[in-house]
Every structure is written in C-alpha cells, then in structure tokens.
Amino acid sequence: MRLTLKIWRQENAQAKGAMVTYPIDNISPDMSFLEMMDVLNKELIEKGESPVAFDHDCREGICGMCSMFINGEAHGPDRNVTTCQLHMRKFKDGDTIHIEPFRAKAFPVIRDLVIDRSAFDRIQHAGGFISVNTSGNTQDANAIPISKHAADTAMDAAACIGCGACVATCKNSSAMLFVGAKVSQFALLPQGKVEAADRVQHMVDQMDLEGFGNCTNTGACEVECPKGISLENIARMNRELLKAKLF
C-alpha cells in the first residue's frame, strides 16, 4: 500500500504544533497501525529526522496506552479496537490518513501524539478502589453471593482500560463514560457498596476539578470505546451521585 500520512508534530507541550505530510510506501495490509508507524519512524531515523512520538505498550488492546485520533475518530475507523489492534487493511491504497493526538484541555499534548492522561489517574486515586483489611482475616470474595447479572455487568464496566477515547471523541471532552465505568464496577458489587457514596462524590468532584466537560448524551463515547463500555454506566453514576447527595 502507498499512503499519505498527515501527522500532528509538536516539539513539546509549549510549542505550537502543525500537521506534517509524510508519504509512505510498501505498507502491508496485514500490518497493525502501530507497525505502520514503526516503519515510518524507521525511515525518519534513517533520514536523520526526529521520529514521531506516540504512546504504546502492550499492543494487545489491554493497556490503554495507544491514543491516536485517526481520520477524525478515536482509534480510527474500526469498532471495539484500540489503535494497536487497528489493521492497515481498513484503509485503501492511496488513502490520505490524518493522525492527531487525543484532544481535551485535561489531556495536554506532551509531544507529537503523546498526551498527558494523568487526570484519569487522579480521578482513580480519588475513589476508584475499595478499602480491604488485608491483615489475614479478609473474607474470601468467593464466599459472598453475587448475582450473575451483577457480576457480568460489573465485569463489563471493569473492561474500561482508561485509554481516553471517550474524552477524545466527545464534542464536550466529557470523561463521564470513564468515571461512570469506574463507579459502576464497584457500585454493582457488595465489596464496593460500602464506600459507594463517598466514592462517587470524590470521583465526580475530581472529574470536575480536572476540567472535563459535561455529558450531553450524544453516545459518541460508547461507539468509539474500544471496550464497548455502555452509556448505562453514566446513568448509573448519575443515580449513585443523586443517592449520595440526597439521602
């Protein structure tokens, strides 16, 4: 495949970035998108140019590190995949591909396609956990009866890898799908119910403090989420917050 890549290049957080065009040839349709980026970077290094900085780690769709906005969509045109799981066969020979970093005020660009998603970490630190006494007298989690439906729904919410595609794709840069998933995965289980009221209040407060926008229920986040996290998690978070504030 012969492609034209238009990639956002930005020296550092303070620098003014711009799109730079790179023609690239001999790309196999079976390559992953990141492998294609590796080929480009190899060529750039051989030419003595600076390689394109981009986040990646597991390359198996688990870690949530890759974060490219490809042709106007978070993680590109495919559904339920991260950028590392996107294959070049999704594009046609001769295509022009726009590659930008995820954009939100709360996700500042560090360099090229690398962004700072530590706002998500701070939201998690604010309440995305359960407090368990690990002195040796901890009750075996398997001894607590949990309905199949609750367990499955909690597991679906826990599938969120915190990649930030929901924020990147939302026209309001809202993080409510992420926070909704993190609130839900605990609120649905007995172990998480104990601290449910404090958790949702602290996490929502931190989300607001980080400067994310408001959800207008367009559903774009759900469509672009590589893990298919449902909008129902946002409704559950809203219910949890109402319960915590009113009762």
Partner: peptide
C-alpha cells in the same frame, strides 16, 4: 460555555457523523 472551555485545540479532522446523530451534536 463550560463544554467549549473543556475542549483542547480543535481537531484538524473530526468525523462527528461517524458516531453520533446530527441532532445530538
């Protein structure tokens, strides 16, 4: 206004029609 403030730099290419209805946007 809050939502606009939360947005970072505008995307060069943004395909909103790919994932949300026009009316919702």
């Amino acid at each position: 206004i809050q939502n606009r403030r939360a947005n970072g730099q505008t995307y060069i290419k943004y395909n909103g029609a790919a994932n949300a209805k026009w009316v919702s946007r």
